[in-house]
Design a protein around this nucleic acid. Sequence first.
DNA 1: CAGCATCCCGAGGGATACTG
DNA 2: CAGTATCCCTCGGGATGCTG
Lengths: 136, 136
Amino acid sequence: MVLKAARKPALGGQECDMSGWDGGNCPVRDVIDRIAGKWSTLLLEALSRRPYRFGELRRLVPDISQRMLTQTLRDLQRDGYVEREVFPTKPPSVEYRMTDLGRSLFEPLSKVLQWAEKNHPSVKAARAKYDESELA
Amino acid sequence: MVLKAARKPALGGQECDMSGWDGGNCPVRDVIDRIAGKWSTLLLEALSRRPYRFGELRRLVPDISQRMLTQTLRDLQRDGYVEREVFPTKPPSVEYRMTDLGRSLFEPLSKVLQWAEKNHPSVKAARAKYDESELA
DNA sequence: CAGCATCCCGAGGGATACTG
DNA sequence: CAGTATCCCTCGGGATGCTG
């Protein structure tokens, strides 16, 4: 199997300093790199509201492939942010719910997302200004 | 030139819903994707302390290549988080300093980094538990 | 010193088809 | 319904060498 491999750092990743944040092997990026994935924040945001089933999440985030949905959910589960519960119905249904750890992460994380939403215009303006002055 | 292209979304990226966060083209990920780069947070953290020169940043983050240092700084500058000032000395020196926008971003962002540092043990524990139960 | 240019690789991730 | 299994390709990013 290939998909199963809930991505581990592959190798390396020993460095990182964070200039006084901590003393070794950068725990910060070890955590950040996971939630920095393309879909992680979207799913965390959704699951912060209420539990969802697999298919519901697909419909909520229409642009995600089921491959990435499965993989991202497994990664989030592996890091302890999300719990998976299987209901032995026929056909089976699976529910994903956020854990306490997930909530405690999402609290500061949501602040960043709100910042992004609010300040998007400023960022776009900065980009436009930069690009303009660059094509001189 | 190839490096110059301060990365624009390439194309696509039209989707995103954020389930009620906003109405289109996902401004959230447009912002997040940038600061989710491998080195962005490290550099923002450094520059949140004080301005630095290029070489100083290299020494602060020894594992970054100058290619990535240049590119990440340009991206951060383009999005308005960082200012670049060139001193016409010989040889030239360049100083990077965080802008007000950068600081306002780093405020919530630093909370997430602190969370990551603090809760790294919990995450590692969750991973160990998951991996153990998986190789059954 | 502070970059730019080139070559190159691997992981992240998309599309599609199949299954219990 | 909730996944697995493959194929495939883009692009983030490392290594190296050259310049004003």
